[in-house]
């Protein structure tokens, strides 16, 4: 069996993600970056709209972008911290991501935004912060072209 790139690198590329349509992006949808068959399914139970499904415990989660409302409930539940919500409004993009480090940034704070390899690819403004079950669920406003790249933040403090 040949190795998949992500098995060596620990990162996936945008090509490996099922892309939502522009309509979906306007409303906001969850992007699930969970590509392996692992015994896990809390995301399925977490979604109040039945947007995430799974054939069996060891299957990969499938998301139905038509059903997803971008509410972000699944973000803090996922033990793999593998779910992000992305949304486009005008020229602005918004990424909601799980964050379990200190300091937890504050609303209005400008932070560095990082890609899947931890490289700084720009700046963003924090627009929402909630903490659920001790996981921060943080929304950052970024350039709309970056929503499929930004996967982490780094406070400048």
């Amino acid at each position: 069996m040949s190795l998949k790139d992500y098995e060596r690198t620990g990162t996936i590329t945008v090509d490996e993600i099922k892309m939502p349509s522009e309509e979906h992006l306007k409303r906001g949808v969850a992007i699930i970056e969970c590509v392996q068959e692992i015994p896990c399914n809390p995301c399925v139970d977490a979604c109040p709209f039945g947007a995430i499904s799974m054939e069996k415990l060891n299957a990969t989660p499938k998301i139905d972008y038509d059903k997803c409302k971008g509410c972000g409930k699944c973000v803090s539940v996922c033990p793999g911290l593998a779910i992000f919500v992305v949304r486009i409004r005008g020229e602005n993009g918004f990424v909601t991501l799980p964050y379990e480090m200190l300091p937890i940034p504050e609303k209005g704070e400008v932070v560095d935004v990082l890609n899947r390899e931890g490289k700084v690819i720009g700046e963003g403004e924090i627009t929402n912060v909630r903490v659920e079950n001790r996981t921060g669920v943080i929304t950052v406003r970024v350039d709309k072209n970056l929503i499929m790249e930004v996967r982490n933040i780094c406070p400048k403090r």
């Binding site: 620990g10 969970c34 793999g80 593998a82 931890g118």
Partner: peptide, 30 residues
């Protein structure tokens, strides 16, 4: 999370042994 710096993870096999999602969490922090 405890505030230490993780310089690198080394693995003798040609692929990461644990779950991709755990590896991705680390990679995101560089």
């Amino acid at each position: 999370q405890a505030g230490m710096e993780v310089k690198a993870v080394v693995e003798a096999l040609p692929k990461i042994g644990g779950y991709f999602v755990h590896a991705a969490k680390l990679r995101r922090f560089g």
